[in-house]
Design a protein around this nucleic acid. Structure first.
Lengths: 365, 365
DNA sequence: CTGAAAGCGCTTACAG
DNA sequence: CTGAAAGCGCTTACAG
């Protein structure tokens, strides 16, 4: 059983404690230590006494009390859907950018992990209870009719799936990225270019398909529906979808190149191609999208389209802080518009020149 | 300029508002809505009136006020060192486990990003100001003499680098993992086994070296210092270190297998080997450690030693919550010991049988 | 069993 | 310029 004295020492020092030790009021201590009411002047001697007392008592302001008085937590939430045991590298890169920027602005970052956007709204709203000042929604599925968040909760989205009015969204120019990659493939001589797409109900896949088709058109290559293959989003899907396509099309002319919805699917394609003895890029070229770390760890390394995910996370923080400031009545330059980051083709060895000799789709082994 | 009325609507409803609307005291509302003092009984009619009023006003308890009254934030911090632009997959997998468990226990997770363990102590201590109830330190470098955290801040470490007394650490059996992997390589016929190690001032590399050497000894393979190569921890290091070794040892007998400190370095080795035309696993086998997602996305997939990072993150949360409960005077079963998780060899195609024909280290191209 | 009051640790508007 | 007081929104010990 702890003695009363011991118990006392378990309590962190408060402003009152510091004031007592320095022979001043808690308010004076607040003025000096937490920078409240900077205009007022406390004599240097007193100030020093207060600072010393605080140091000795190891004083640090209580965040909860401050938040309650200030109506400000200095914490931003990041809402994200996490799959089963789901490591998501896309999330990680954006998240790093968010943490980096938040730290720079002296904001905390806290994660609001969801399993499903529309099913977990209650949970999400539960976060908007004063513990965060605003929210970054990562790749949310927003619905026009119903709000995801309580009114008056400032938020910014990244890669939203719905073009709702009056929301600030950070995204990248996916259509152009896809366009440039396909143009890059064409420049290497490829003409029979397959596109394996992702979930077509989402905006991202749609835009990448558009870029793909626009590039074909501008290269005067007719669009061949047989070369637009539907998958989901992960490596297994890329592998399985290509496997099936190969099985079904044995003997047909082999595509010169495959452009995938993302890096994971492209990696799955590498596997499926290796299985039937096709060499990348000697027999066929492969390209992805996202420029995740994984794209640099394949052999050969994967050509891809880079989105500046780190920078996008940082930008979202800045936009959100402006929105929060605006809501608090502070002057702030607030954007109401979507911010679009450029994408960039990263050439790597998985894309080579078009083979001199045309090949046929091999029979599955 | 907003009218007073409009301004009012910006304020979230409080218990007092709910009480007013339902014709009861704020306290009664607290009892019903936030479950305080469950023993007391409020008539069903009143209860229903309160619940309805709360729903209508969209009431949700203010987290800061609650934290202040309860001395409890229901938030755990995760302190981690983040490199420059640093995507760290190891962190991500542990972090997922932490979020998952924290969510299950209705705790928030907030990230305390540092750049350097010993240099950023002020920053780290700044987090211990009531905004978190306790801290998980991820791979910290603790020093015996000086405490990293303020006294009375409960914490748990994962993969700490220092065997300090009286701290709870979650780790995996790295020595045995390395031992088993080398035994696995020996079982495939390999005898000339290179080990590329990480920063040897850290505990992890030391333990993996020990496991490597113990396995050699138990297989009656003499330890060859030339085959213990020093690197740092990332893919570039693995690639560069092996490149140099190859250049320096052209014409010498090629190792049968390379066992790397971690997956990233092994991936770098795949790259260096591909550069000089060596095939994996036909010419040489390669193994990593960690079983990150990246190990499954290489071609060929990387044999590795799995640490249950997701589970380890979850365990850390449970241990930390017990410590917090204990500090609050609640009864709790609190461990003071290190928790060691088992490791497991994951065989994949990057490890094959020892080549029938011995090869020499090729000249660099 | 119930309500009024005090308190969590801070900040800010308000008298002296 | 300074201090005492009120308030942020909740909870809990304390009288009725």
């Amino acid at each position: 059983m702890p003695t009363p004295k011991k118990k006392k020492s378990l309590r962190a020092a408060t402003l009152a404690d510091v004031g007592l030790a320095a022979g001043v009021s808690a308010m004076a201590a607040s003025t000096v230590l937490n920078g409240a009411r900077t205009s007022s002047r406390i004599s240097d001697a007193t100030r020093e006494r207060i600072v010393k007392a605080a140091a000795k008592l190891n004083y640090r302001p209580n965040a909860a009390a401050r938040a309650l008085a200030n109506r400000r937590m200095n914490t931003i939430g990041v809402a994200v859907v996490i799959g089963e045991g789901g490591v998501n590298h896309y999330f990680m890169e954006v998240f790093n950018g968010i943490i980096d920027a938040a730290t720079r602005y002296e904001q905390n970052t806290t994660v609001c992990a969801l399993h499903h956007w529309t099913r977990d709204t209650v949970r999400l709203r539960g976060f908007c209870d004063g513990r965060i000042d605003g929210l970054i929604l990562l790749a949310p599925i927003l619905q026009p009719d119903k709000a995801l968040l309580p009114a008056h909760t400032p938020f910014v989205s990244i890669h939203t799936n719905s073009q709702l009015p009056n929301i600030v969204n950070v995204e990248s120019d996916e259509e152009r990225g896809a366009w440039e990659m396909v143009r890059h493939l064409v420049a290497q001589g490829h003409r029979r270019i397959m596109h394996i797409t992702g979930p077509v109900e989402l905006l991202g896949p749609q835009r990448r398909i558009q870029g793909y088709q626009r590039a074909l058109a501008s290269s005067r290559i007719p669009f061949d529906p047989l070369l637009l293959v539907h998958g989901s989003y992960n490596a297994e899907s890329g592998r399985d979808v290509l496997r099936q396509w190969i099985k079904k099309n044995a003997g047909a002319p082999l595509p010169h190149a495959i452009f995938c919805f993302n890096d994971h699917m492209a990696i799955g394609c590498l596997e499926a191609l290796a299985e039937v003895g096709l060499r990348v890029p000697e027999d066929i070229s492969v390209a992805g999208f996202d420029d995740l770390l994984a794209s640099r760890t394949t052999v050969p390394q994967l050509a891809t389209v880079q989105q500046p995910l780190f920078a996008m996370g940082g930008k979202a923080v800045e936009l959100l802080l402006a929105r929060i400031a605006q809501q608090n009545g502070e002057e702030a330059i607030v954007s109401d518009k979507t911010v679009i980051f450029p994408t960039k083709v990263i050439p790597r060895f998985s894309v080579g020149l078009r083979p001199v000799i045309e090949r046929l789709v091999p029979a599955a082994r």
